[in-house]
């Protein structure tokens, strides 16, 4: 809670933003803006786009204080290479990790609970190698119950408790780094849906209403920062594919995961259709329950091309 309170101090963001020289592509009007945008959408090579998006939001220092324990949650649930667009682009994950290190984070872990063969998911996705190149042994799949701790979800409507990864419960900062992909059950799988990879019993979420359960979950472990990798987008038949893959080459970032998800939904065509954030049950419900904002037309969405 202290963390969120801190983030709300506008002076903090202002000071950090002022410390950066802005790239020339920005219009003078934007350059003079004092507050960081609500959502940053940057087109470019994956790592550079991720770095620029975070810079626009005020830099990683806005989210990670020195010594903070950080958990990064990418998608690495499928034993697929990055080309399948089912796992997060390893370059994006690596860059986020590097930025956390630059912000002098304490312990950083990259965690998921894989659906397919966990070892192969980590190796084929390229994410373990990418993380190892920064720091060894921080990229893990945690499947064993011993890594989880039972915790209540006080604001949950249908799901009032579950077992969460202990590392997530103990973390100071949670960063969602999902890939942007369709999901046949939930419409899309982005930063809110991705939090399902941090709990032990996912079955219970499907037995009730999935949308409500996703929002319930995010009332307990809401990402402090969402960085959506849209270098590739699986536009149908997700989350496992095979489906149609497009390559927008973008990264969408926001301190509000609901806004980030909303912008991602509106940015691409799903199964060939233009859809609004309200067409995704859990985004609509998250908005209604005050978890974040999906009214992107009222938000400051800054689009930058590198």
């Amino acid at each position: 809670m202290n963390r969120r309170a801190f983030l709300k101090i506008p002076v903090g963001g202002l000071l950090v933003t002022a410390g950066f020289s802005l790239p020339s592509v920005l219009t003078p009007a934007l350059a003079s803006a004092a507050a960081p945008p609500d959502v940053a959408v940057v087109k470019g090579s994956p790592a550079a786009a991720a770095r620029e998006a975070i810079r626009l939001l005020g830099g990683m220092e806005r989210f990670v204080r020195p010594g903070d324990r950080v958990v990064i949650k990418p998608n690495m649930s499928f034993a697929h290479p990055p080309e399948n667009a089912t796992n997060t682009n390893p370059e994006v994950v690596r860059e986020v990790l590097v930025m956390c290190k630059e912000a002098r984070a304490g312990r950083v872990l990259v965690l998921d609970n894989a659906l397919q063969n966990p070892e192969l998911s980590l190796s084929r996705s390229g994410i373990r190698d990418a993380c190892d190149s920064v720091e060894k042994d921080i990229c893990k799949h945690l499947q064993d119950i011993r890594y989880y701790k039972e915790a209540g979800i006080p604001d949950g409507k249908t799901m009032t408790s579950n077992s969460f990864m202990s590392d997530v419960l103990e973390a100071d900062v949670l960063i969602a780094v999902p890939i942007c992909k369709s999901h046949n059950g939930a419409g899309v799988s982005l930063s809110l849906k991705g939090q399902m990879g941090l709990i032990y019993d996912r079955h219970i979420m499907h037995r009730g209403y999935l949308s409500t359960a996703i929002v319930d979950l995010c009332t307990r472990i809401k990402p402090d920062l969402a960085i959506i990798d849209a270098s590739r987008v699986l536009t149908n038949n997700g989350p496992g594919g095979p489906g149609r893959i497009i390559t927008p080459g973008e990264v969408i970032a926001s301190a509000d995961p609901v806004s980030a998800d909303a912008v991602a939904v509106a940015s691409y065509e799903w199964s060939g259709q233009k859809l609004a954030p309200r067409n995704v049950g859990y985004i609509r419900e998250a908005h209604e329950r005050g978890l974040g904002r999906m009214d992107i037309e009222a938000l400051d969405v800054r689009r930058v091309m590198l």
């Binding site: 999901h183 046949n184 059950g185 499907h206 949308s211 496992g240 594919g241």
Partner: peptide
Amino acid sequence: CLAWFEGKNCVVCQEVCPYG
């Protein structure tokens, strides 16, 4: 089946199927 019988949005089987 949650989807067939209860009309719920669950297609976990499709999610995880490695063979499509």
